[in-house]
Design a protein around this nucleic acid. Structure first.
Lengths: 232, 232
DNA sequence: ACCTGAACACCGTTCAAGT
DNA sequence: ACCTGAACACCGTTCAAGT
């Protein structure tokens, strides 16, 4: 079996040394393959060709590995180009963050579990704050707006990705999910739920991009109101 | 040991019959006591004086029990009074929902995991949509706004409750969390992170109520822009 | 109709022991 | 310095068997 026979790393890297970074990447691969529920220490260990107990040499516990994983996910984020007004850039930030979370399996759940500002997230925050201040927001408002963006996008994607359960209230039909959900709303007693019955179509509108855009626009309009009129 | 010796429920309820509702309440008690990570089928079973395997008679699997639990959490929600303009009422809705999620241990995590519209949630949606339409929002906007409220509040509380990890980037100091976080931001290299250093105080402002209110106000302003001027 | 015992295939974590 | 085997105290779920 391959073995490191030297203490000075870099001189003989046939076995590339088990770094925390390598662990994070392995965890990311397991996450993609098996989802967050299937992400176990044993599997991550196997992914790097080692036994589960060995991981505890590099990492205090599973949560710390998840923290590394979180920042690894953030690592593939790219700030939008510095073009257009603040609205355009904030808008792009929201959409890119959502795309990022949608792009990695269970990413929203991973990120939501922990507030772990690793180097990658710190870089993004720095950049974002810089643009908000340049747009004319006060320090406090810039900080708040940045936080709001994160909370909103994470919350939205989490909601977006959470599976719809057909509980006994709604029956158990199958079919195209959105249509089925619409029918179920329509099938509710109209005396007790007149609005749900009436808005069944709108409520089960499956275009999540449109729903997201709605939210982003509300927040943009709300933020604009904080600026002096000439900077909006 | 106590035993039901009759098939007609209600005539002899010394043993109150294991209903799904009772299971949900038991799960809620375990959740309060041990948190979501500590909520196991075995513990819920013990809570109702039964073995784990028995639960599978009443419930398909753990996820279905969590769905029941979700609606049980929603069950203690009370719609705000029908007073004031739509802004005031929407505002109250946001705050009450947040208070509800903060009031039960790990409630945000439970609710975020699954889109399970049980009877209690349906009632809330119905009421909310009714008010939004009365305020003058179009059907589509009312549906969107209702969804936005849910996503935002859940996302916010989830973020609010997620523990801050002191990763190796930020050092490992203890002390009052907010102060420590502030110091850690201030300790970053000012050349690479000028804004984080500069806004350290604002970024680590521990008043979550204020942060939440900020978000709510942005959304309210954004929604207002959808209405004809005379109804804002 | 409802509950149990026993089993299966997993978990995260610890720790003495190896090299 | 880094890894392993073995163990501990758990998991969710199934299923034949009980009453």
């Amino acid at each position: 079996m391959p073995q490191n026979h030297t203490d000075t790393p870099g001189t003989d890297d046939a076995t590339p040394a088990l770094t925390r970074e390598a662990l994070a990447q392995a965890a990311l691969r397991v996450l993609e393959r098996d989802g967050l529920a299937g992400l176990s220490m044993r599997k991550v260990a196997a992914e790097v060709g080692v036994k589960a107990a060995s991981l505890y040499w590099h990492v205090r516990n599973k949560q710390e590995l998840l923290d590394l994983l979180t920042d690894a996910v953030m690592g593939s984020a790219e700030p939008p180009p510095r073009e257009g007004d603040w609205r355009e850039q904030f808008h792009a930030y929201c959409w890119r963050y959502r795309r990022l979370l949608l792009g990695t399996r269970d990413a929203a759940k991973v990120v939501a579990g922990r507030l772990a500002p690793g180097p990658n997230l710190l870089g993004l925050m720095e950049d974002q704050l810089d643009r908000l201040r340049a747009a004319g927001f006060t320090d406090a408002d810039a900080a708040m707006a940045s936080y709001l963006l994160g909370a909103f996008v994470q919350g939205f994607v989490l909601q977006e990705q959470s599976p719809i359960s057909a509980s006994e209230v709604l029956g158990t039909s199958r079919r195209d999910i959105a249509d089925a959900a619409g029918d179920l709303f329509r099938a509710l007693p109209a005396e007790t739920f007149p609005n749900l019955v009436d808005l069944a179509g709108d409520l089960t509108e499956p275009n999540m991009d449109a729903r997201f855009e709605f939210g982003v626009q509300r927040i943009l309009d709300g933020l604009a109101a904080l600026l002096p009129p000439e900077r909006r």
